[in-house]
Design a protein around this nucleic acid. Structure first.
Length: 497
RNA sequence: GCCCCCAUCGUCUAGCGGUCCAGGACGCCGCCCUUUCAAGGCGGUAGCACGGGUUCGAACCCCGUUGGGGGCACCA
């Protein structure tokens, strides 16, 4: 294995998740920033799967990751599905590479066999009057061949540790500026387990080196492990596996409620809820990009193209960002309203179909109805699935009145209103929005002397089952006389006044 | 315990020594529009953690304090 030939000066980022469990929004934010950085600079992004932990990794989770990336619109230049010259792109298929690199590190003296058990290390620390929390004491660096042989004869199989350099380890972080760790503050760390299985802190930089990664944008949680990686890179460069050390940028945490990292238990942490609720990919991308970055002083709504055009890692904020669902929704609603209505219809159909309201594809009648109501619905929705509640009444024979809506609008005085509405609509010669509006206003506002909000509330609930609906007269026209009258009658029966 | 990161309205942020009695957005409140709810328009609420420096001048630079977060595995 030797350092790869890659075009010099071209930025190469990477996204390298472990396929374990759910897809976390923080992870997707990391993917997005790597992608935006690559696209902005005209570089490339590599997608690699870190499936070294067979007990936790699953094929299902891997597929899920792929789906999530596709949904968000993130693509990659090398990796699963697209291949590339630096594969394989799954760590589970790269064991030979790690074995080879480990052997060369050992041979070149950058790494050494270490036999100490944790208990022995602790005992030595204690004996020296030190805190065992200091960790490994680098003692095995100085083992003689005879000592090593003795340990092997005991049946011990050593781990492989990297010899840390005796000097400060510092780098200029893309988002934080210079970060420095004092010499001696990081002990020699384990590259390969006693059983021969390589560890993440080893394989990750090896893969990055072999894949020609130039810019590593990752979570802030990995910042303390950077000195070790720096040291590893030096060693890898020395033996010809790496052609230098990449730039690092540590992205701020995405926080949940309270002062904690958005945890797996936070419902908002699960990326799946966004596609399911009908966030738009462009809406969620916009919001995710705002978690630590901003496009301009007076603007926070932008397209994916504008993100790519303007994205600059060095302007990413170093402080943690709290995930604010309300703001995410507001941003999404703006994108939703900006959609051309035909596009809005196309996107909303799967949600209506999933709820059983329309077939997929919709029948011509359903499509006509949807086309008529879409412009009126679009501006009062936040996410696409809102259409189910907002428009459901138009696509069903009967409507189920929400208890809260009945409580609010079908109490005292509602009977009178429903009777009057029924009478006037029954006799209405022409079933048009304008005629319905005139008739209802005359009957309820003028005739009964009701305030508009008291007059139309019960009618709306009767017709749509909810206190929130598309504009009333249009809704009634689209519903048709028969269903409208049936619903008024049903509501009349339920009304307490 | 040790190491590291962070610190501007409730929240996300702009600000990179004077143009800031700190700008935008979400939220919240009020008004307008209005057949509900929204949307839209207008207005309002609210912040530079604290203490020392440096400087003619500090939200911006330095030091300290406090507060918050993270890391110290033969997990990733």
């Amino acid at each position: 294995m030797t350092a790869p030939q890659v075009e010099s000066g071209v930025v190469r980022t990477r996204f390298c998740p472990s396929p374990t469990g759910m897809v976390h929004v923080g992870l997707m934010r990391t993917a997005l920033f790597n992608w935006a950085h690559a696209r902005h600079t005209g570089g490339q992004m590599v997608f690699r799967i870190e499936d070294t932990d067979a007990s936790r990794d699953s094929e299902e989770s891997y597929r899920h990751l792929l789906d999530s990336l596709h949904w968000l619109g993130i693509d990659w230049d090398e990796g699963p599905e697209v291949g590339g010259p630096h594969g394989p792109y799954r760590q589970s298929e790269r064991h030979d590479i790690y074995r080879d690199v480990a052997a060369r590190l050992l041979e070149s003296g950058h790494a050494y066999a270490s036999f100490s058990t944790n208990e022995e290390v602790d005992a030595r620390r204690l004996a020296a009057g030190q805190d065992p929390k200091l960790g490994y004491d680098n003692a095995d660096r100085y083992l003689t061949d005879a000592q090593k042989a003795a340990f092997r004869d005991e049946g011990r199989s050593p781990v492989l540790r990297l010899r840390m350099p005796d000097e400060d380890l510092a780098w200029t972080d893309l988002v934080r500026g210079e970060v420095r760790f004092a010499a001696g503050s990081v002990p020699d760390f384990v590259l390969v387990r006693g059983n021969g299985v390589p560890l993440y802190p080893f394989v990750n930089p090896v893969d990055d080196a072999l894949m020609g990664i130039t810019d590593v944008l990752r979570g802030e949680d990995l910042l303390p492990s950077t000195p070790r990686q720096l040291a590893l890179y030096r060693a890898l460069t020395d033996i010809g596996v790496a052609s230098g050390t990449p730039r690092f940028g540590h992205l701020p945490y995405v926080m949940g409620d309270g002062n904690k990292k958005l945890s797996k238990r936070d419902p908002q942490a699960n990326f799946d809820v966004y596609p399911e609720r009908g966030f738009l990919p462009e809406g969620l991308t916009n919001y995710l990009a705002l978690l630590g970055w901003s496009i301009a002083e007076d603007r926070d709504v932008f397209s994916v193209a504008e993100l790519i055009e303007a994205f600059d890692v060095t302007r990413v904020s170093a402080n943690p960002a709290r995930f604010d669902l309300k703001k995410a929704e507001a941003i999404n609603a703006t994108h939703l309203r900006a959609l051309p209505v035909e596009e809005f219809i196309v996107r909303v159909i799967p949600y209506l179909a999933k709820a059983g309201l329309v077939s997929d594809p919709p029948t011509p009648e359903q499509l006509a109805l949807l086309t008529a109501i879409a412009p009126l619905a679009q501006e009062r929705m936040i996410v696409l699935s809102d259409a189910v509640g907002l428009l459901g009444f138009l696509f069903t024979a009967d409507v189920e009145i929400e208890p809260a809506a009945a409580e609010k609008q079908l109490g005292a005085g509602a009977g009178e209103v429903l009777d009057a509405a029924t009478a006037v609509l029954q006799a209405l010669p022409e079933w048009t929005t304008a005629a319905i509006e005139t008739a209802l206003k005359e009957a309820l506002v003028d005739g009964l002397g009701r305030k508009p909000r008291q007059a139309f509330g019960p009618v709306r609930v009767a017709v749509s089952g909810r206190t929130v609906s598309p504009p009333l007269y249009e809704s009634i026209e689209l519903l048709g006389r028969e269903r409208t009258l049936a619903r008024l009658a049903a509501a009349r029966g339920a009304a307490t006044g």
